[in-house]
Write a protein that binds this DNA or RNA. Sequence first.
RNA 1: CGGGAGAUGUCAGAGUGGUCGAAUGUGCCGGUCUUGAAAACCGGUGAGGGUAAUACCUCCGGGGGUUCGAAUCCCCCUCUCCCGGCCA
Length: 370
Amino acid sequence: METAKAEQNAMSKLFGQYMREGKDITELKAKVDANKEAMIPLQEKAREAEEALYRVALAMPNFPDDTVPEGADEEDNVELRKVLEPRSFDFEPKEHWALAEGNGWIDFERGVKLAKSRFSVLRGEAARLERALINFFLDTNASKGFEELCVPFMNNATMLQGTGQLPKFEDDLFKIEGEDLYLIPTAEVPLTNMYNDEILAEKELPVLMTGYTPCFRKEAGSAGRDTRGMIRQHQFDKVEMVAIAHPDRSDEVFEMMVQNASDILTALGLPHRVVELCGGDLGFSAAQTIDLEVWLPGQNQYREISSISNTRDFQARRAKIRFKDGKKNKLVHTLNGSSLAVGRTIVAIMENYQNEDGSIEIPEVLKKYM
RNA sequence: CGGGAGAUGUCAGAGUGGUCGAAUGUGCCGGUCUUGAAAACCGGUGAGGGUAAUACCUCCGGGGGUUCGAAUCCCCCUCUCCCGGCCA
């Protein structure tokens, strides 16, 4: 294909010479025309093959790392450690929606009225707690070297493809009518794609970014799950960490991110466990994922509050994020993780810090933020 | 949203059908000079893919078209700037 193209180029070049020298060009023209004719089916075939390959490639999930435990679903995830002992209650701990009602913290009905089901309104102290948590998370991340960014909450299709949400998961996204824009399902999308189609200098790595954004998810396919309360909403706030790392050093960045998220929970006094996802439970883009699950005494179970993933070069390939390794351009590794999901943190605070009369204490570290 | 202008290498800015991957300036790298630096002078220097390295392919905002041949001509889109409207 390229050879034929090269010949074509060479012949066209000759044309100019012949013209200048006043030579006869009819013969040459015939030859060029023939070559061009012959190339058309070739080109067509090459283009089709390329398109087909591309389509298939975009629908392929990432390969799990060799170290990822085998397994089909969350039942096979591996608990790595527990942090903080759950407190013992001398009364029956309530679930967060009951506490929310008693304290007037969450207005579920009006959230539904304003939008639809799975939307809610935080009121008064809960709204201030939301804001305090965002600030606490951002400040903590900044102290670990993450640059704080404030990004668009809508991104175009190219960016969603870069991080792996498109084309396969379009049904999970809210699309803006008449625009090439989607409401972001996570800040991972804008933060990672900050460097879409860019080539970084090696010394710029790792790029550590954090940002607060609301996240919008249709939650298609989770009908009937977590319909009660604030665990699974169409819109929720999250502070995200994203790292663009040198491929040789993404593992240490990953560890650092997991530790940071865990430290935040510890600082809030929230018991949690660190869980490594098995192959079957990994998301589309992830090569390795560690979830942090916070203890909810009202529900008497651990629930996911943070998910930290190393996508290796999976997103980098899609988003064309490279770095200069000497003279060569190589793919970076991209990592992302929540630190933390704000709504679920409020849920955890309500359930863990509840008193027998239904009132709720505010964790010590948050007091200066409120 | 309406009217006008524009999009070219790090940046600025020429280039209107072949000798253009692209003048010139600037920046950057190397050298001469200097105790050192600056200035001056000389030389080198666009990007992406590909390769062991060459070849080779692609790229003048994006997509399509005309042509043997397009940065240059035609169509569509996007973005930027200026004027007006609207607005946090």
